[in-house]
Amino acid sequence: MSTAALAPEWLTAREIALCPCGCIGKRRKANFVEKTIIGAANVLKQAMFSADVASQPGLLQRIQPAVKVVTMLALLMATAVVRHLSILVALYAATLAIAVASGLPLWFFVKRVWLFIPIFTGVIVVPATLNLITPGRVVIPLGTWFGHSVGVTAQGLTSAGLIVARVATSISLVVLLTLTTPWNKLLAALRTMRVPKMFVLVLGMAYRYIFYLLETVTDMYTARKSRTANHRNNTSSGRAFVAATAGATFGKAHALSIEVHDAMVARGYTGNARSIDHFQIVKRDVVWVLACSVTIAATLGVNYALGS
């Protein structure tokens, strides 16, 4: 299967340490060293993979980045406003069509979007379908609990459907944008959109040095791993090691920031950001904008017609 070749094994076994609920983390029995290294490696692979996809020919790849950013934001807002499941499903189907037209393997795209957040959302909204949380017309009675009847409500089911469909559509739109736009073009698009150049400079530099710092961290962890092959993680020494690694990394990061500043000043930087990019809107961009406008107008129109 061609998609299997395109979607490397890390995508299917994706367990980036950046979990959707951020700080709670995943509570799984695994060595913290291993998890940190895997997380770091995944970020790198994902970035390289995105860069490869973005350079392939396809529908979205041919649209000017700034135009893409604006239309994607408009579509995101339309998605957020919609309150009917049927419209959301139609919008989601549209993102699938665009993905295919942009040369993204369908199955890969679906997996990339649904793992992990929409599925996670689906799981956490299950309790919200009960009348305990979302009152309404009970369609599936489940019995009684402490003298109260418990059941799944029509409102609860609709609500769960709405949120999962909306989350999936929103993520699809963002993934479509970032997978078909090289990072530097995206930054350039932000600049043309009057996002302060200084902010774009910071953003670009931050992204660039994530990889450098990840490498530093991975090296430190690998060194530790080679020394602690036999005994399982000892929690308190593990914590001390994490703190030392994070602390040492900050020391390196700060030294690096001074060096980078020197390198910038040496080449004439005085606090103003300048950039080389210039954009030209061509016919296909106009067509794309029109198509998106029609989609958004239709979405909002149908949404209004169906009422609340």
């Binding site: 340490a17 950046l18 951020g22 983390g25 913290f32 060293v33 998890k35 940190t36 997380g39 770091a40 970020v43 200084m198 400079l201 910071v202 953003l203 670009g204 530099m205 931050a206 992204y207 660039r208 040095y209 994530i210 450098y212 710092l213 990840l214 961290v217 993680n233 929690t235 593990g238 914590r239 994490v242 690694t245 994070a246 990394t249 900050f250 990061a253 700060h254 690096l256 920031s257 001074i258 980078v260 500043h261 910038m264 000043v265 930087y269 005085t270 606090g271 950001a273």
Partner: peptide, 24 residues
């Protein structure tokens, strides 16, 4: 002053990386 761009940028990179540290 002008040093803030690299300082904040690398601070942001550091922050991103901190979110990857798994603490036992």
């Amino acid at each position: 002053t002008s040093r803030y761009v690299p300082l904040v940028a690398i601070g942001a990179a550091y922050c991103f990386v901190v979110m990857m540290f798994n603490v036992p």
